[in-house]
């Protein structure tokens, strides 16, 4: 039964109609987009979803003006250190979190703006050789950083005004943590992947490292995206940027692996493979949907529970897709080009 489950299920022709283009925004001043995301914003008693775009030296906030039209509200300029990524903070309002650095993340900053007072600021949350960062519900930010001697894993509780209210150290594993993922429905649990290809679990309240479980050598450099706890098992969505193609499974983009935290044993539950003759991927997961940019410049979308590729956005005449991110709260998929064009799709 397990072998049967591991057989990839790929549609011959992925249904593109599962993605509907809602609107397009174009940052004409952007020479090279590095990331795109969404943030909840509350102003004048109204809460709405806004789009955030980032280039190396600027981060811009966009508001919906009409159903298919976006206007730029504000641009923060960050000239000293290049922006590497936008760090989503689920359910947080009026705060944009960005990671900056050269090759690796060197600092994490919070960006604030008030249209009522027309004031803006950014505050430094963390500096160091930061290897991984994740934003969690309830304005919590967890990061791992490394010195020559030791690794530090820390959770920062952010204030509404962009400060750090509290800090909690988490017990670091011996291996470098490469990614974090929140566990759906378990506020105090956090999952991480390590450079040694293990999945680790923390208790965020006590800071304890609860378990280390090996992923397996067939999937080097696995990255965790999301986890769900159900019926005593921990289901972790992993992406495999470096996994090689195999005859039985094709090239895995995402895999759902069930771990028994009690025994440390694991088994693969579902594969989501690259469409035929596609290579390379850089992925993002929301709920049970995965999206990845392929080296061809296309964006592929998977239903991770069924292991099916459900949509492919081919590269258009205007250029290749370079970014694919899920909007917060299931509001859709954001696909971005390097020239600053962003398409928002309903999924």
């Amino acid at each position: 039964a397990v072998a049967e489950q591991l057989t990839p299920v790929l549609l011959d022709g992925p249904r593109e109609e599962s993605l509907q283009l809602v609107s397009e925004l174009k940052d004409s001043s952007c020479s090279c987009a590095v990331d795109v995301g969404t943030v909840w914003w509350e102003a004048a008693g109204r809460r709405e979803l806004r789009v955030v775009t980032a280039s190396e030296s600027t981060v811009s906030l966009w508001e919906p003006l009409a159903p298919d039209c976006w206007g730029k509200v504000y641009t923060w300029h960050l000239r000293e250190v290049p922006v590497i990524q936008i760090v989503p903070l689920p359910d947080t309002c009026n705060l944009v979190c960005v990671a900056l650095g050269e090759l690796e993340i060197g600092e994490i900053r919070l960006l604030l703006h008030s249209s009522e007072t027309d004031s803006s600021k950014h505050s430094l949350v963390k500096t160091g050789n930061i290897k991984a960062v994740v934003g969690l519900k309830d304005r919590r930010l967890v990061s791992s950083s490394r010195t020559m001697q030791e690794q530090q894993v820390e959770m920062v509780l952010l204030s509404e005004t962009g400060g750090s209210k509290d800090r909690q150290s988490l017990m670091p594993p011996e291996e470098t943590v490469t990614a974090f993922a929140e566990v759906e429905g378990m506020r105090e649990a956090l999952v991480g992947t390590t450079a040694g290809n293990s999945v680790v679990v923390w208790n965020l309240k006590t800071g304890q490292l609860l378990k280390k479980m090996h992923v397996g050598y067939s999937y080097p450099a696995s990255i965790c995206h999301r986890a769900y706890s159900d019926s005593g098992l921990l289901f972790v969505v992993l992406s495999h940027p470096l996994a090689k193609k195999s005859e039985s499974c094709g090239s895995p983009a995402f895999r759902v692996v069930a771990f028994n935290p009690h025994t440390g044993q694991s088994t693969g539950v579902m594969f989501s493979c690259l469409p035929l003759s596609c290579a390379g991927r850089q992925g993002d997961v929301w709920d049970t949907a995965g999206a990845a940019v392929l080296t061809s410049g296309a964006v592929a979308v998977w239903d991770l529970l069924q292991g099916r590729c459900v949509a492919v956005l081919p590269p258009g005449p205007a250029g290749h897709w370079a970014l694919a991110r899920w909007a917060t709260s299931g509001a859709g998929l954001l696909a971005g080009r390097r020239d600053g064009t962003v398409h928002l799709y309903r999924y």
């Binding site: 019926s231 005593g232 098992l233 028994n260 044993q265």
Partner: peptide, 23 residues
Amino acid sequence: CSESDLGPISLNWFEELTAEAPP
């Protein structure tokens, strides 16, 4: 997944591992 694949399953794994792990 069955118990034979993954060993005995505990619904309270998080609490049990918290009690067992070093503080």
